[in-house]
Amino acid sequence: MSVSYSFKYLTLETFCTCSQTYQKYRDRINPYPENLEETLPALIALNERILDPTIEQFGFENFQLTYGFCSKDLKRFLERKDPETGKKNGRVAPRLDQHMACERNRNGAYYCPRLGAACDFRILNVGSDRVVDWILEAQLPFDSLYFYGSDRPIHVSYSSQSKQDLWTFTATGQPTRKGIENWMKILDQRRSPV
């Protein structure tokens, strides 16, 4: 099944097919949402509120989407081990990361009760720390933002909750706020009533 939709700068196809795991197993994965009524508006909101302003700031030619929407099929392949390397194809945390947007399991429950939508991206030739600086300065209404390092993509989500939850990670992958105290100060000031 192919679903055609264009956001301002990106297409739904790009959003659903950009991951390395999809590229590797494309002939066996349906990358598109099944719950279009809820998932498409969540993806539109993520693009309009977070990605469009970021692309306008840094330029479309510098924007690289590395992981967008995660379909049920893609989730299954991410959880599997590569038969050649024996390593998992990727990491997936559907209850937390919002990559599955508003998709539902066979029992009708949302994979991610937080709803909204998420993606990972980087800006070529710009450190991800500088991108986070700009996102905070521009006061983009993100829900969650994960900083993995200056030379790695950032994860950002948007939902109506706009929790402004910001994390970085230790070398072993544990979430922490160590090292991002300045960013946390900015968020705390924004949250405090004047």
Rank of each mutant, 00 (worst) to 15 (best):
F69A: 04
L10T: 08
V92P: 14
R95G: 14
H99R: 00
Y32A: 03
E56T: 01
D52Q: 04
P83T: 13
E13I: 05
N47D: 13
C70S: 08
P41R: 03
C102I: 01
T85L: 04
F77N: 11
T21Q: 07
R114Y: 13
P31D: 07
S71L: 00
N125C: 09
L78T: 14
L96E: 13
E61K: 03
I123C: 06
I44C: 07
L43H: 05
L78S: 12
I44E: 12
F15E: 15
S71I: 00
N125L: 09
L51D: 04
E38V: 01
C16D: 10
I29L: 04
S2P: 14
A109I: 06
A117P: 06
Q64Y: 14
V92K: 13
T39F: 03
S19M: 04
L36F: 14
K81S: 15
C102T: 07
T21M: 03
K24H: 10
K75H: 15
C102A: 09
D97N: 02
S71N: 00
K87Q: 14
K87L: 14
C16T: 04
I50A: 02
S19F: 05
G116K: 00
R26K: 11
K87P: 12
V92R: 14
S6H: 12
P53D: 04
Y111Q: 03
L65M: 10
P83I: 12
S2Y: 15
Q20T: 12
D97L: 00
E61T: 06
A42M: 02
A45I: 06
F121M: 04
D120Q: 01
T85P: 08
L74E: 11
E13K: 10
L40H: 09
Y32F: 12
L10C: 06
E56H: 00
N35G: 01
T54W: 07
Q64S: 12
T17F: 09
F121K: 02
A109V: 09
K88L: 15
L43M: 11
D120M: 00
P41Y: 06
C102Y: 11
N107Q: 10
V126H: 07
Y110E: 06
K72L: 02
P53Y: 02
R28C: 11
Q20H: 12
T54C: 08
S6Q: 12
F60K: 12
Y110I: 01
V3W: 14
